[in-house]
Amino acid sequence: MLEIKNLHVKLEEEDKVILKGVNLTVETGKVHAIMGPNGSGKSTLSYVLSGRDGYEVTDGSALLEGEELLEMEPEERAAAGLFLAFQYPVEIPGVGNMTFLRTALNAQRKARGQDELSAGEFLKVVREKAKTLKIDADMLKRPVNVGFSGGEKKRNEILQMAMLEPKMCILDETDSGLDVDAMRLVADGVNALRDAGRSFLVITHYQRLLDHIKPDVVHIMADGRIIQTGGPELALEVEQNGYADILKAHGLTEAV
């Protein structure tokens, strides 16, 4: 599904190298997790994959089902099936959540050569999906993320994911700022979308989200590289011992 090869990235405006040769392959239908200390480049990886400005790719490639993502505009990546659940979802006053969802969905359908959904069809689908995420009619009507609590914003991200039905979902620290109940709700939403044809890349600091969204593969990222890959037990190890031992084994010290 997603094949990242030797990805090198620096900041556009300064001479700061953030990713120093990331290699990562996410197979179709699998859930991969990336853990790592602060400043390891996890969020940068998610932004670079989704096409945010401010980064310069100096080497490497990222293929989504064989197509080069790095040459596409953000909206083209979305239409190709990539979705990033933001760590900090953006508030957009004055634009109704429904209008936003419908505009996004129809734009993607159009880009794929599909017919746009009628207002009626759209409403039916959105209501159904919102219900399972405990998103009420009021939240759907309100402006995008405006006045939403941390939990509501993250649920709203998952609702967008459910509506857009991407093939490759990246969750960037979706657990940050969530209490246990909110996290479970979000995890249930994600788990409901797990599917043989859909892959996930779950970026997180902590093991606890992975208790709810069980990964197939766990990667440890540090200093702009994937330094270790293993099964779910690797996340448990980090939870118990922290990153120090793993970093040390790779000749790195923990960033303070």
């Binding site: 096409g51 953000p74 990546r77 953006v90 969905l105 880009a111």
Partner: peptide, 15 residues
Amino acid sequence: DETALFYLRSRGVPM
């Protein structure tokens, strides 16, 4: 707002 613009585009809404 560039962040908001990126957010919308990342959802597939053209520029």
